[in-house]
């Protein structure tokens, strides 16, 4: 089946089998390998992308369902050389260790702060319910998202914990 969609601002047309999962289309056909496959069962969130402006799990979406849609993947989040506030937050607050969960975590976090510019710690933790991390214990991920939210509001983020001890 022929599908046409916009991926990170660029129009793409491709011929896909109906059973092709969107995440495989993105990784294997478009070679955008920033979007990860962790569980393939819709639980881990490593495959999170934005479809028509909403965070979704691309391992549980068919590529044909995205016909006509606009998609943003982790590769399309930064503004040129300027990192998205969430990317900057993960960098500044060490929101990753192995990095496997990071693209999905960042895509979901970008939506959390877009929809709720001043989220509480509880709201952040619930917001990433659908993203599993095997390394960090989530602590620095929450700190990274708090940093990003402050930055996006135009405020100076709280100093890092290790700078205050």
């Amino acid at each position: 089946m022929e599908i046409t969609l916009t991926v990170n601002g660029e129009k793409v047309t491709a011929d896909v089998e109906p059973r092709t999962l969107l995440v495989h289309f993105i990784r294997d056909e478009l070679r955008l390998t920033g979007t990860h496959v962790g569980c393939e069962t819709s639980y881990c969130g490593a495959c999170t992308i934005h479809l028509n402006g909403e965070a979704i799990k691309s391992c549980t979406t068919l590529a044909v369902q995205a016909d006509g849609a606009e998609i943003t993947t982790i590769e399309g989040l930064a503004d040129g050389e300027t990192l998205h506030p969430v990317q900057e937050g993960f960098w500044e607050r060490h929101g990753l260790q192995c990095g496997f969960c990071t693209p999905g975590m960042i895509m979901q976090a970008a939506k959390i702060i877009e929809e709720n510019p001043d989220p509480s710690e509880d709201e952040i933790r619930h917001g990433i319910d659908g993203n599993l991390c095997r390394c960090t214990g989530y602590h620095n991920i929450v700190k990274a998202i708090e940093y990003a939210a402050a930055k996006a509001r135009g405020e100076e983020p709280e100093p890092a914990e290790w700078e205050t001890v």
Partner: peptide
């Protein structure tokens, strides 16, 4: 129900 991404779809 589920998580944010699930509820979006």
């Amino acid at each position: 129900t589920g998580d944010a991404q699930v509820r979006n779809t």
